[in-house]
């Protein structure tokens, strides 16, 4: 967050942030993580054949390719990250 935005937050914004952090932030990140695993599955199904795993005929992969391409970079980063048992805590 840029410095000006941080200063502009004020007491109301600060309290809102604290309440959100206590009540919902964990839930939001858990929901994001669930979506991440679904996306991994989706990318694997759609682009699997390009990785040498024939899970979907190339015709459909090519039809879906334009929708999947914007996510490829962040997907690669997430799916290749080594996860440890201590990462699974929250």
């Amino acid at each position: 967050m840029p410095e000006e935005e941080r200063k502009k937050l004020g007491v109301g914004g600060m309290l809102k942030g604290v309440m959100y952090g206590m009540a919902s932030h964990g839930n939001v990140t858990a929901a994001l993580r669930t979506r991440m695993y679904m996306e991994h599955l989706f990318m694997f199904i759609t682009l699997g054949d390009m990785l040498g795993i024939p899970v979907l005929p190339p015709y459909y992969s090519l039809r879906l390719l334009p929708y999947a391409v914007p996510n490829v970079k962040s997907w690669k980063q997430r799916v290749f990250r080594e996860r440890d048992f201590t990462d699974a805590l929250y």
Binding site: G13, V18, Y20, G21, M22, H25
Partner: peptide, 10 residues
């Protein structure tokens, strides 16, 4: 602030 709330709750 969000992170403080999250850390405290956790």
């Amino acid at each position: 602030y969000v992170l403080w709330g999250y850390q405290f709750k956790s």
